[in-house]
C-alpha cells in the first residue's frame, strides 16, 4: 500500500531552488535510504515532508497517513548535547503533539514511553541525564521520542552521524527491528553505510536516482558518492 508519493518536487528557500524534479514513492513497511552529499538538500526534503516548509512546486500526497503520524529524528544540534533533562523527560515530550492543550501526560502515555525506551534499548538509562549519555545513546533516546510521536512512519535525519561503528550498528539494529515490526523507515545519510541496509534508495544531488538498492549499487549516482559497488 502506498503511503507517500512525491511528484516532480522542487525544494528550496526563499524561491531559490536547491533540488528539482524529485519524484519517488514509499509503501507501508518500506525502508528507504536518502543519500546525497553535504548540502545537497536532504534535510530540506525532510523539513518539506514534515510540512515545516512548503515545496516550491510539485505535490506531496499521503494516503492512510497524516503528517502527525510521522515520527521525526532531527539532525542533532550542538546545544541539545548539554541540555539538563533526563532521558525519560525527553522521550515523553514526543507525546506533546497528541496532547493538544492538555497540560499533563497520562498514565498510559508514561507506560508507552517506557515501552518505546525498551524497544530502542535505553530503558535502563531512563533516569540518567541526557548530556551525560554517549552520542549513540542520545540518538536512541531521540528514536524512542520519535516513536512516541508516531509509530507508522519514521523519518531519521542522519541518525548515525558522529557515532563510532559499534554505536552506529546498534542504532541500525534498533531501526531494523522497528522496520521488521511494520514501521515504515525513511533514513537520511550522507555516506554509503546506510545504503546496504535499505530496500530502496533515493539519491539527490547533481544526479537524481530513485529505485531499488540493487539497481542503485550499479548506478552512476552511487559511484559519484564514492561507492565502489560490492
Amino acid at each position: 500500500m502506498t503511503q507517500l508519493v512525491c511528484e516532480n518536487l522542487s525544494l528550496g528557500y526563499n524561491g531559490r531552488k536547491i533540488v528539482e524534479g524529485l519524484s519517488f514513492e514509499v509503501n507501508a513497511g518500506d525502508y528507504l535510504c536518502i543519500v546525497g552529499e553535504n548540502g545537497s538538500g536532504k534535510s530540506t526534503l525532510v523539513k518539506t515532508l514534515l510540512g515545516l516548509m512548503p515545496p516550491l512546486s510539485g505535490v506531496i500526497r499521503m494516503s492512510g497517513l497524516t503528517r502527525r503520524e510521522i515520527g521525526y529524528l532531527p539532525q542533532q544540534t550542538d546545544y541539545q548535547r548539554d541540555f539538563p533533562a533526563t532521558a525519560r523527560e525527553i522521550v515523553l515530550s514526543g507525546f506533546q503533539g497528541a496532547n493538544g492543550a492538555h497540560p499533563f501526560y497520562s498514565a498510559a502515555q508514561k507506560k508507552a514511553a517506557s515501552g518505546n525506551m525498551e524497544k530502542t534499548g535505553v530503558l535502563p538509562l531512563a533516569r540518567r541525564c541526557y548530556r551525560e549519555l554517549s552520542g549513540g545513546q542520545q540518538q536512541r533516546v531521540l528514536l524512542a521520542r520519535a516513536l512516541c510521536a508516531a509509530s507508522r512512519m519514521l523519518l531519521l535525519d542522519e541518525p548515525v552521524a558522529g557515532l563510532d561503528i559499534k554505536a552506529a550498528d546498534r542504532m541500525y539494529e534498533a531501526v531494523e527491528k522497528l522496520n521488521a515490526e511494520g514501521v515504515t523507515v525513511i533514513m537520511i545519510s550522507h555516506d554509503t553505510s546506510a545504503v546496504y541496509r535499505a530496500g530502496s534508495v533515493l539519491h539527490i544531488g547533481k544526479t537524481l536516482f530513485f529505485g531499488s538498492r540493487e539497481k542503485y549499487l550499479e548506478s552512476e549516482a552511487f559511484r559519484g558518492l564514492g561507492g565502489r559497488g560490492k
Binding site: 515545516l52 521525526y72 532531527p74 541540555f83 533533562a85 514526543g94 506533546q96
Partner: peptide, 13 residues
C-alpha cells in the same frame, strides 16, 4: 518540548 527541540515540536503539531 519547545525548549528542548523546537523543530521537532513543530513537526509533531
Amino acid at each position: 518540548s519547545v525548549t528542548f527541540d523546537e523543530s521537532f515540536a513543530k513537526a509533531v503539531g
